[in-house]
Write a protein that binds this DNA or RNA. Structure first.
Lengths: 197, 197
DNA sequence: GTCTATATGGAGATAGAC
DNA sequence: GTCTATCTCCATATAGAC
């Protein structure tokens, strides 16, 4: 509605895309302005500094995660939800092999040197981990087991994105997501009271 | 011996440390010169460009990996070697939680945008994966299983480094390395002809 | 609110004395 | 081979007209 919000939205969207593809340091405000079809100086009405733009991009990623998890919450069982999360990586394998996971690569870059920004970035993982941990809990695992399994799952997804990106090989992601799906199945079978949400 | 090599060595060592701590983009040649106790201009006698320095850092990491794997090769069984690899991450957990895995964070950064440099960086993972795959093969797995397991292992180690770095939590690395060690034990037990190198 | 023009600083890279 | 001084470019950021 408000044209102000529309431009701000275009800026964060353009920045999110460019940061994913080229990294934050390699992305110039001129790049962002061009993709958002705004003059360079126009950015500063919406964002005082480049770091403020990075923060907006991070917030946007947090929203993406929250929206995804809400969608997954509609599935009937925790096992189905966890497998659906894994499946998101399988579906995004081509773009992740090209540019890495948008969350992981952002966190890794923002963690270097910048104090305040890295704090915001860490929220991306606390959300994912808390949700996964909750699912494992609902599936009947103890709190400790749920925590360990959630950490393993999210780490594996982040790691395969990084490795596949380094190798430029999207099939690696497919291999690992199949492995993780199998692991989740095995866990369900091992459980006594297997997964009634 | 040659004082030239000594300075070149000091430069790559300083660059490797700084790139790990602050990232490649955030590291200036002035930083490197200062840490290596050389004047800024002196760098250009050894490295024509900043990218050439990045390449030297990457080569250095490749050497580190090769030396590590050679050391692990002296262990009696493939299971012992794989568990020892995991243990390296457990031992390095404090520094990895602070700055991320030196290999993974370097690859992620160099993969963004730079064509030629990312190729060199990918060698870091091809070495690690080939070695791990060989160990799983020696442990009695089929080629396909060995490939899958190697990818899972290296991904998990990379992923936990990334997540622990984002959270600033070295205990996360400890949790995951314990999990992986347990997984390797389970694999051995599942195998019929368990692991005679 | 939006745009143009410009200031400022910093980082990579070079020239050239020694 | 080594060091000092400097150049140039470019990216962030600002000033100020409209």
């Amino acid at each position: 509605m408000n044209p102000t919000h529309s431009k701000r939205e275009r800026l964060t969207a353009a920045a999110a895309t460019l940061v994913h593809q080229k990294g934050f340091s390699n992305t110039t405000l001129a790049d962002v302005a061009e993709m958002a079809k705004l003059p360079l100086g126009g950015i500063y009405y919406y964002f005082k500094t480049k770091d403020a733009l990075a923060e907006a991009v991070t917030e946007r990623r947090v929203s993406d995660i929250d929206a995804l998890l809400e969608k997954l919450d509609r599935l009937p069982t925790p096992q189905a939800r966890l497998k659906a999360l894994v499946n998101v990586w399988a579906e995004d394998r081509e773009i992740d092999a090209l540019y890495g996971c948008p969350i992981g690569s952002l966190c890794y870059e923002l963690a270097k040197g910048r104090g305040p920004l890295s704090t915001v970035a860490s929220r991306l993982f606390t959300h994912l981990l808390a949700w996964s941990e909750a699912q494992f809990g609902l599936a009947g695992f103890t709190r400790k087991q749920a925590k360990t399994h959630a950490l393993h799952l999210i780490s594996a997804l982040q790691g395969i994105s990084l490795v596949a990106n380094a190798l430029g090989d999207s099939d690696a992601i497919l291999s690992e997501t199949r492995f993780l799906t199998g692991w989740l199945d095995t866990l369900s079978r091992t459980q006594k009271n297997g997964g009634h949400a």
